[in-house]
Every structure is written in structure tokens, then in C-alpha cells.
Nucleic acid binder design. Structure first.
Length: 680
DNA sequence: AAAAAAC
């Protein structure tokens, strides 16, 4: 019965989708169209075992297998009890076990499988190889003047820069407050012309249509160029990727190939020594940063690479062998590569932690410490370390300090997240009503029926991977063009899902926390917190997927009694950003606060809130937390602030660097009044 | 408690 009705729905949907995409017969996702026929052979997707079934979009490709693949119905439909064995197809799996590999017995096909996994980037990589004729010459970097641009390549240029639309609403940027604190903070710039950039970088900035520096760029570019360490609190979409890539690559171009490269072939193996290392907490984010790096490295002798899990290590190693000066990586795969002797970190002069608060949390910090401390990376002070995140709780700042040397703290006003250009709505929705309410929201957006709406995307966050599967299945059965992304899907599925969402083929994406951070997707009009996260930082990151770079956005959050622990922070955030505050939320927050107060009084005899993470963005805790004065001084080891020579860089400024803790602009008034406890 | 991240 159920199966029959499912089939009816499925076939209807299939037909509808087919109509909408203008294809007859099998539905082919856009990124696979116009490819060599071998890409689309059905048996390409045939699995070696049931767990290995992978498809471009779950449930769109073919008949019965499709149905089996989508078999996880019971998760969201408690009353149906599941479809027996089909259920084990997805939900019975251990976390992360359905990556493309990791199980024995099918190694023969791995190469092929992986090749497909990263298909959508291969085109450009081929172009790049052809264009440069770049070969690493056995691990030795190219000679020649690194400041001089190589020849143009129209095909590569188109593939890198595309339409070139940045999506940045530059006019909205003018009033964004920025505050820089730290000793002898370099003066910020107002336009790219104020810094001497190499011709290559200037050209690429132009190609990328970055007409004016964004606020984070205005501050970060001179700070990085002055060889200072940096902790920057800025949203994705504020232009932060370029804010570190531009000055880093520019310095690399200026410095040219390093003269003291380690031996070329230790153990007979080609080993690469990147000059810059960028670490990111999710694979998709790593890819995104890599693509940006390819833009700014265009026509240069500098070759960016990316390594991350879930994709073929052999392919990645082959790519590394062609040369790697700037490496973007997720931590696990990077350690894999260093263990294998494919990557040496001895020459890393620039270390970037993107989404640093995540990188330094409990799950990641041990790996980061291993990378930074146990792999011969130049120590603090001999390298430049830059950290970026939308939120910097005090705890993270304390932890981060051991990776940093006399750093500048940059607080960029929240361009596109919690500020007024995102309308935040908190709605009380009981657990049982969530789906129905979600349908109402989606109907309002007129997305039903597979109408591709690339300029109006809806991102739905849930708390668990199982929940993501269940909700996607539900929406799909209801006829919505939906896909999903979470850590239990294969890398192939994840990348396809993202691509399908970005392009508007499936303008609804159900996602777990994997998509909360850093992903820069233009045109996300609506973020829906189907499940609220459990901490306010995560909330800030999530809603930051919309209202990007000065454009308008909407964030709707379903709240119910399960989210009681969020009431206080949520209220604070929502009222601070001039949003409508539901009365019930104020009441709950008051209740919770009273409970906490009395509990604290019993425990400590005082009420107290953790400083620094109570808000959302963050402030430089050094300025507020006088208890850390001593240890901070120790951390700086009595070093004269900025022990590097100012004269060594290629930047000219309108004015000299300021000499003390300075907030260029102030948020609230009490930023600049603190004592200069560095005692300079 | 869950999610992410190597195999």
C-alpha cells in the first residue's frame, strides 16, 4: 500500500522534474550534462555493495535502486515503523562510514570512483596544467621572477572568474564599524591603491570585480602586509577570504622562491613544502577557499592545492606533485599527507585558521596542535598566523593565544548576519507542528513544483544527520525540489548537493552543522532553523548564510520548550539587533535568568555570566580581562612589539602606524578607555 | 547530545 502510493508520488515528481529541466527520459543533473557519455553510464553508479550506492541527487536518477537508496523513511515517520531492511541502507550506518572508501574489498575501482568525485573541478585543473605547462621539476620550485605575470589564458580566465559578479553590495559597507586593537596597529587603508600590490594581484582583483576593499580587507590587508599576526572577527561574505589571500599571495610573489628549500626527494618521494597553509573545518569550505586562491594566483608561478577527506588521496598526491606553494586543507587529510611524507611544513611562513573558533574547539584542537607543534612548522614569531571567525568566545581567544605573536584583534561589524539586514523571526513551533509550519513557509516562497529559483534559495538547518535525511525525504515526497548535505553522505553527494543548491536546481537544502560555517552561497534568501542549535555562536554562523554582504535576508527559527537553554542568549542577540522580540521569549528568558541567578547564588554566592561569549561577535578579551595581563605579557616574552622590520614590506601608507591600543572607530564608547596594560 | 574531521 504505502509502497504503491510512494511510487505514484515518486513518478509524479519525477515527471514534473523532467518537464522543468527540459530533458526527456533520465534526469541528468546540470553539472553532468554535456559531458562525455561515459560519465553518465548507469553502471558508473553501480555499487560494489549496497552501502556504496551513490547518486548525484538522492532519489532522482533511476527507478528501483533509487527507491532503495531513499529507504530511510522511518526516521521521520514514527507511525510507519520503517520499511524493514531498506531502512538499513542509510540509517544503520556508523557515522562517516559511507565515505567513498574506507572499506576493504573494492579497491580496484577506487581510482575511477574518485575521479568522478572531483569531476566538477577537474576541468579547470586541466586547463591550469595545460596553460602553465607547470611541472614541479622534481620538487624544485620554478625559477624566474615571481612578481611578473605569466601569459593570459582566456579559457582559464573564464573558468576562474566566470561572470565575475561578486554579489557584494559595496554601498552597504560604508557604515560598518571596525575596531582594531593591539600594539602598534598598522593604519587601515581605504582603497586598494593605497597599498603597493604586485601587478598579478592587481589584475586579479580587477578580474574578480573587487572594486573597493571591504571593511575587513581595509584593515586586514595592511596588518598582514606589516607581517603582524591577526585574530579577526568577521563574517563569511565580508570578503575575509580575500582579506588574507591577497596580502599573503602578494608577499609570496614579492619574496619569490625560497632559497633554503629542504632536500628535494627525501626517501625517493616528491615532497612539497608549501609556503602558506590554510586550514578549514569542513571539506566544502576548504574547496571554496581553494577556488578563491586559484583566482588570486592566476598568471602567477604560485600553485595552490587543496586536500581533504572523502576524496581520492592518490589523485590529491598527484596534484601535489605538480607543485604546491599554498595549501588549503582539512586537518585530518593534511596529517595523513604529512605522515605519508608528501607534505613538509618547514617552509610555512603563513598559517591561516579559518573558522578558528571551530578549529580550536574540543573536536579539532588536538589535530591543530599536532599540525602546528609536531610537524616542524616554524614557531610562533617565525611565521605569520592569522585566525578568522564570525565569533570568538573568550575561551577560544585564550586558547588561540599560544598560536599567535603580539596579534592585532580585529572586530568587524556584522555586515550580513546579525545586523539589521537580516530579519530574524523567532516562532514558537511545537515539535509536532514543525513540518506543517515548514510547508507553510516554503509555500510562501513559491518554490513548490520544482520551479528553479536560483536567486531565491532556502536553507533549512536541522540538528542531526538522521533528521536531515528524514526531512529531506519528507519534503521530497511532498514534491519540493530539495536536497541535503550532512557528514554521513559521501563527498560526491555532498558536493553535488551543494552544486545543485547553488545553481537553483534544488533551491531547498536541508543541512546539518556542516553547512553552518563559512560556505559562501549567494542568494540564500531564507535560513530556517527547523531545529535551533544549542549555542548562540552556532546560531550566528547559521543565519550568516543569508543576508550576505549587505543584501537582505530572512532567518526564521522554530523555538519550543526544548530550546530553553537558548532563550537568554537568543533574546539578547535578537534585541541587540533591533528585531521584534516575542513577548513569550522575554518571559522565558527572565524565568531562566532568575533560575540561574538563584542557582548561582547557592553555588558561588554571586551571579555571573561568562564574559565575551555572552554576545555574539566578540571583543578583544585582552582589553577587558585584566586577570590575563600577566600571562599575556609572558606570552609575548618581552618581545618588542613587531620585531619584524617595517621597511621590508612593499606597502606605503598615508600615515605612520599608531603606537598604542587604538580603536579606530568605536562601537560603544568604552573600548578605548581601558589601560594600556602592555605598558609600552 | 550532536556534528565535524583520515583511513
Amino acid at each position: 500500500m504505502e509502497i504503491t502510493s510512494y511510487w505514484a508520488t515518486f513518478q509524479n515528481n519525477f515527471a514534473a522534474l523532467d518537464l522543468n529541466t527540459g530533458h526527456s527520459g533520465k534526469y541528468i543533473p546540470p553539472h553532468l550534462r554535456n559531458r562525455p557519455q561515459t560519465q553518465q553510464q548507469p553502471n558508473q553508479y553501480k555499487a560494489n555493495n549496497a552501502h556504496d550506492v551513490r547518486e548525484p541527487y538522492r532519489g532522482r536518477n533511476s527507478g528501483s535502486r533509487n527507491f532503495e537508496q531513499r529507504g530511510n523513511f522511518s526516521g521521520g515517520y514514527a507511525d510507519r515503523g520503517g520499511f524493514g531492511s531498506a531502512n538499513s541502507q542509510r540509517s544503520g550506518r556508523k557515522p562517516n562510514s559511507d565515505n567513498a572508501y574506507g572499506r576493504g574489498g573494492n579497491s580496484y575501482s577506487r581510482g575511477k570512483e574518485f575521479e568522478r568525485e572531483s569531476n566538477w573541478r577537474d576541468g579547470r585543473q586541466d586547463l591550469e596544467g595545460e596553460y602553465r605547462g607547470y611541472r614541479n621539476n622534481g620538487g624544485r620550485y620554478d625559477d624566474g621572477d615571481w612578481t611578473q605575470p605569466l601569459a593570459k589564458n582566456d579559457a582559464l580566465e573564464r573558468s576562474l572568474f566566470g561572470s565575475g559578479h561578486t554579489g557584494i553590495n559595496f554601498d552597504k559597507y560604508e557604515d560598518i564599524p571596525v575596531e582594531a586593537t593591539g600594539l602598534q596597529c598598522p593604519q587601515h587603508i581605504e582603497c586598494f591603491d593605497e597599498v603597493e600590490l604586485t601587478e598579478i594581484i592587481r589584475n586579479n582583483i580587477e578580474l574578480a570585480r573587487y572594486t573597493r576593499p571591504t571593511p575587513v580587507q581595509k584593515y586586514a590587508i595592511p596588518i598582514v602586509s606589516f607581517k603582524r599576526d591577526l585574530m579577526a572577527c568577521a563574517q563569511t561574505g565580508s570578503g575575509k577570504t580575500a582579506a588574507f589571500l591577497v596580502p599573503i599571495l602578494n608577499q609570496i610573489f614579492e619574496n619569490g622562491p625560497p632559497k633554503n628549500m629542504p632536500p628535494v626527494r627525501p626517501g625517493g618521494r616528491i615532497k612539497q613544502y608549501p609556503l602558506a597553509l590554510v586550514l578549514a573545518p569542513t571539506r566544502e569550505l576548504a574547496v571554496q577557499i581553494y577556488e578563491e586562491a586559484c583566482k588570486f594566483a592566476y598568471r602567477s608561478r604560485v600553485r595552490p592545492c587543496v586536500v581533504y577527506g572523502g576524496a581520492d588521496p592518490v589523485q590529491q598526491m598527484k596534484d601535489l606533485d605538480k607543485g604546491c606553494h599554498l595549501l588549503v586543507a582539512t586537518p585530518g587529510r593534511l596529517l595523513d599527507m604529512t605522515d605519508r611524507g608528501k607534505i613538509g611544513l618547514e617552509m610555512v611562513k603563513f598559517l591561516v585558521l579559518d573558522e578558528a573558533d571551530r578549529m580550536l574547539d574540543m573536536g579539532f584542537e588536538p589535530q591543530i596542535s599536532r599540525i602546528v607543534m609536531e610537524n616542524n612548522m616554524p614557531p610562533v614569531g617565525d611565521r605569520q598566523t592569522l585566525m578568522f571567525s564570525a565569533t570568538f568566545p573568550k575561551k577560544v581567544q585564550e586558547l588561540a593565544r599560544r598560536f599567535l605573536d603580539n596579534y592585532i584583534f580585529l572586530a568587524v561589524g556584522r555586515v550580513g548576519s546579525t545586523s539589521e539586514n537580516i530579519t530574524q523571526k523567532i516562532v514558537w513551533v511545537d515539535e509536532i507542528d514543525k513540518r506543517s509550519f515548514l510547508l507553510d513557509l516554503l509555500n510562501g516562497a513559491e518554490l513548490k513544483g520544482g520551479v528553479a529559483a536560483a536567486d531565491s534559495l532556502t536553507l533549512v538547518f536541522v540538528e542531526t544527520k538522521k533528521g536531515a535525511d528524514a526531512l529531506e525525504t519528507f519534503l521530497y515526497r511532498e514534491g519540493y525540489p530539495v536536497t541535503s548535505i550532512h557528514g554521513d553522505r559521501s563527498q560526491r553527494e555532498r558536493e553535488d548537493a551543494l552544486q545543485s543548491f547553488r545553481s537553483g536546481v534544488t533551491p531547498i537544502l536541508v543541512a546539518t552543522a556542516v553547512a553552518a560555517r563559512g560556505l559562501d552561497i549567494p542568494n540564500v534568501k531564507h535560513v530556517i532553523n527547523f531545529d535551533l542549535p544549542t549555542d548562540i555562536e552556532e546560531y550566528v554562523h547559521r543565519i550568516g548564510r543569508t543576508g550576505r554582504v549587505g543584501n537582505l535576508g530572512l532567518a526564521t527559527s522554530f523555538y519550543n520548550e526544548k530550546n530553553r537553554n537558548m532563550a537568554v542568549d537568543l533574546l539578547e542577540l535578537v534585541s541587540e539587533t533591533n528585531q521584534d522580540v516575542p513577548e513569550w521569549l522575554s518571559n522565558i528568558a527572565k524565568e531562566v535568568q532568575n533560575e540561574q541567578r538563584s542557582a548561582n547564588q547557592r553555588k558561588f554566592g554571586s551571579s555571573g555570566r561568562k564574559y565575551g561569549s555572552g554576545g555574539f561577535g566578540s571583543r578583544d578579551y585582552r582589553q577587558f580581562d585584566r586577570g590575563n595581563q600577566r600571562s599575556s605579557n609572558t606570552a609575548n616574552n618581552g618581545r618588542v612589539p613587531n620585531g619584524h622590520s617595517y621597511g621590508a614590506n612593499n606597502f606605503s601608507y598615508n600615515s605612520q602606524p599608531s603606537t598604542a591600543y587604538v580603536g579606530y572607530r568605536s562601537y560603544g564608547g568604552n573600548y578605548n578607555t581601558g589601560p594600556d596594560w602592555f605598558g609600552s
